[in-house]
């Protein structure tokens, strides 16, 4: 009798997410946004007629906040205080980061942006759904396809047709119920 139970319990404590390099870069990014805020803020023109503190002061204050907080974070990260990554029901903090899937998803969103105008919204949305579901490992492919098409048509009908959001209907042009 062989009970091949594979769901082995992942033991041990949660692995530290990622390398501190990424976190450090992000903190430095916050500092640099603040610095850019100062530099670009100096270029904001102040009309001489302005009686109040003008359009520059608040941007400078925000930039100062970013620089100060960012520097504090850089310091914290260097001293070994790490941020605790967001948790969720569908998130496995012990899993290795799956950059490939993230890249695929981002790629399909980008592709979608370029397809809306030539192909119309329903087709572009169906491709996005199909691609995203595939990237995330949904199977079988024909069910993904059917779901993608049905979802795209329903959304086009509800938002384009019923609610009057002007989504380009693409090949559905002329069918009144899908708006346009």
């Amino acid at each position: 009798m062989s009970t091949s139970v594979q769901n082995s319990p992942g033991s041990g404590t949660a692995a530290a997410p990622g390398k501190p390099i990424g976190e450090l870069v992000f903190a430095l990014l916050i500092v640099s946004i603040g610095v850019v805020g100062f530099v670009a803020g100096a270029g904001i023109q102040t009309p001489p007629s302005a009686s109040d503190i003008g359009p520059r002061a608040f941007p400078f204050a925000v930039s100062a906040l970013l620089v100060a907080v960012g520097a504090g974070l850089v310091f914290q990260v260097l001293r070994g205080h790490r941020g605790s990554a967001d948790e969720g029901e569908d998130v496995d903090l012990e899993a290795k980061t799956d950059w490939l899937t993230v890249g695929k998803l981002a790629g399909f969103v980008l592709l979608h942006a370029f397809l809306i105008v030539p192909l119309g919204w329903p087709v572009a949305a169906a491709i996005l759904f199909f691609g995203a579901a595939w990237s995330l490992g949904a199977r079988p492919w024909w069910r993904n396809l059917v779901t993608a098409i049905v979802l795209a048509l329903v959304l086009q009908f509800v938002f384009g047709g019923l609610l009057g959001v002007s989504l380009p209907p693409g090949f559905l042009e002329g069918l009144g119920i899908f708006g346009g």
């Binding site: 979608h112 942006a113 809306i116 996005l128 759904f129 199909f130 995203a132 959001v165």
Partner: peptide
């Protein structure tokens, strides 16, 4: 899960596109 998150993405691009009806907003 793949359907759930793919669906979230589709709703997201719908919301983004309908802000100004320009694909640049999706980017």
């Amino acid at each position: 899960r793949p359907y759930l998150y793919a669906g979230i993405l589709v709703f997201a691009v719908l919301g983004a596109f309908s802000v100004n009806f320009t694909p640049i907003d999706v980017i």
